[in-house]
Amino acid sequence: MATANLLSHIDAPPTWRRIDCVSDIHLHASDAATAAAWQAYVDDAPFDALCILGDLFDVWIGDDLLSADPTADADMAFWQQAVAALAALARRRPLYVMRGNRDFLLGARFASAVGCTLLADPALLTWGQQRWLLSHGDAWCLDDRDYQAFRAQVRTASWQAGFLAQPLAARLHQARALRQRSQQHQAAQRAAGVAPVDVDAHAAAAAMAAAGAHGLIHGHTHRPGTHPLPGGATRWVLSDWDASAQPPRLQVLSLTPDGCQVRPLAPAAA
């Protein structure tokens, strides 16, 4: 995978009036309803810039899938169509993409194909007097020790080189198996009444202080809402997307000169 340049600071121009933040869209071929809601949103593009804070895709097995035969597998065709839609958006609006725990293999070829800017995690957004720290959030879930060990392994250059050296079909098979195990684990946790691990508030507050940020925006935990941090700052947690849930989870956090607004979106018309 070609090394991607990651932007650590967005300096938003004063002419912008709305910056949208989303995360955990988890696009995949078997969830047509969420994909349609996402497509309707990017077609409308009611913002001056969009920040995707990780897990846009439910899985990403390497940038070389962009040149794979789309007729070989439904997932390949879906990913390529999703990238084409992003490229159409990026021709109209500034687009920033942060890698999450599901799509951490997004690289330079993806960014070039889309025309987007890949963000470091965390990254600072400065807009007038506002200073927001943006993150996917998974690195701060310190109590999830099994995940942190897995994260440390798969983020190494050696692991990624070994994984990407395998044929696309083999990688796709592994990704599907991993998704199935993840879904089974989450279902077992829900049945047992175990809540998802949240971020460590002190670690998040320390990162904010180091960046000189006034507020924090992140995803990953699927605990949407606002939460106070040590020191009095606010942590805004983004929702995951699921158009088939009751009620649907299709939320956008809009930053404006007047503050923040959570905007629920309607599912796309059938």
Results as ranks from 00 to 15, higher is better:
Q39V: 09
A40H: 14
A40M: 11
A40I: 04
Y41P: 00
V42H: 10
V42S: 05
D43R: 06
D44M: 10
D44K: 15
D44Y: 01
D44T: 15
A45D: 03
P46R: 13
P46W: 08
P46V: 13
D48A: 00
A49D: 04
L50Y: 08
C51W: 05
C51H: 10
I52A: 03
I52W: 01
I52Y: 03
I52R: 04
I52P: 01
I52N: 00
I52D: 01
L53W: 14
L53E: 05
G54C: 09
G54K: 11
D55L: 02
D55F: 02
L56A: 07
L56F: 08
L56C: 02
F57R: 04
D58H: 12
D58I: 03
V59L: 07
V59T: 11
W60K: 09
W60V: 00
I61A: 15
I61N: 05
G62T: 00
G62F: 01
D63P: 01
D63G: 10
D63S: 05
D63W: 11
L65P: 08
L65S: 09
L65F: 10
L65I: 15
L66N: 01
L66A: 09
S67Q: 13
A68F: 07
A68S: 11
D69G: 02
D69F: 07
D69P: 03
P70Q: 10
T71R: 13
T71S: 15
T71F: 03
T71P: 01
A72M: 07
A72Q: 11
D73G: 01
D73A: 02
A74G: 07
A74P: 09
D75E: 12
M76I: 11
M76G: 03
M76A: 05
A77C: 10
A77W: 06
A77E: 13
F78Q: 06
F78R: 02
F78G: 04
W79V: 13
W79N: 06
W79E: 06
Q80L: 04
Q80C: 08
Q81C: 02
Q81V: 00
A82G: 15
V83C: 04
V83W: 03
A84M: 06
A85Y: 02
L86R: 02
A87M: 07
A87K: 12
A87I: 12
A88L: 14
A88K: 14
A90M: 09
A90H: 13
A90Y: 11
A90T: 15
A90E: 09
R91F: 05
R93V: 15
R93M: 07
P94T: 13
P94F: 08
P94S: 08
P94A: 08
P94H: 02
P94V: 09
L95C: 04
L95T: 00
V97Q: 10
M98S: 06
R99Q: 12
R99G: 01
R99E: 00
G100H: 01
N101K: 06
N101Y: 06
N101M: 01
N101T: 03
R102E: 05
R102Y: 05
D103K: 09
D103G: 11
F104N: 11
L105D: 09
L106T: 05
L106M: 07
L106G: 08
G107A: 04
A108K: 06
R109P: 03
